[in-house]
């Protein structure tokens, strides 16, 4: 196991949303703090810092991960994706995002980034995910505004659309 000196900054290289990151940080810095406050990608939110609420969920090498329980240095050499990567372009919404908007699957929007990332990684790995699987993934997220039903509906709609069962006109953001 690599040992890192606590008081020193260490070089850190990874890919965030397709762009190379090459910076330094202390070993104790959390990935949430690093991507939010060092890089400025503030779409990922911090809700509990103990891995329960799911607001900070990001994709690390295609797997959902709690960024609040991940040290920034653990991302070395990884491909990290956050909510900022989901839209097709600056004034567009991705399929999942559009479904959330259509179904009023968000209110305050604070927990939303993490939910989108969990669903995005699920549907990428399991395009045929059943409602039970979708609900199972969603149990890893706390939302205090919506009562969850619109989130489930949006996820199912998006899953069907991504599978090509339904199609919609692209939606402007």
């Amino acid at each position: 196991m690599t040992r890192m000196a606590a008081g020193q900054r260490h070089r850190l290289r990874f890919v965030l949303n397709g762009a190379a990151v090459d910076r330094e940080c202390e070993p104790r810095m959390l990935l949430t703090d690093f991507i939010r406050h060092e890089i400025g990608a503030t779409g990922t939110h911090v809700g509990c810092e103990h891995g329960v609420c799911g607001a900070c969920t990001v994709s690390i090498d295609g797997r959902p991960a709690r960024a609040c329980l991940t040290l920034a240095l653990q991302a070395e050499g990884c491909e990290v994706r956050t909510v900022e990567s989901l839209a097709g372009g600056p004034d567009r919404l991705g399929v999942l995002q559009a479904a959330f908007r259509r179904n009023h699957a968000l209110q305050c929007g604070f927990c939303t980034a993490g939910i989108l990332m969990s669903l995005d990684t699920l549907l990428a790995r399991r395009p045929d995910a059943t409602e039970a699987e979708i609900r199972d993934v969603l149990t890893g997220h706390l939302c205090r505004c919506t009562g969850y039903a619109p989130i489930v509906k949006a996820a199912l709609e998006a899953a069907a659309e991504l599978k090509g069962e339904t199609s919609r006109e692209p939606v402007d953001a």
């Binding site: 939110h45 259509r102 929007g109 604070f110």
Partner: peptide
Amino acid sequence: PRVEDPALLTGRGRFID
């Protein structure tokens, strides 16, 4: 549809932190 949503869905919300 809500005017609030596009920013919130794309990570461009402006919460205090």
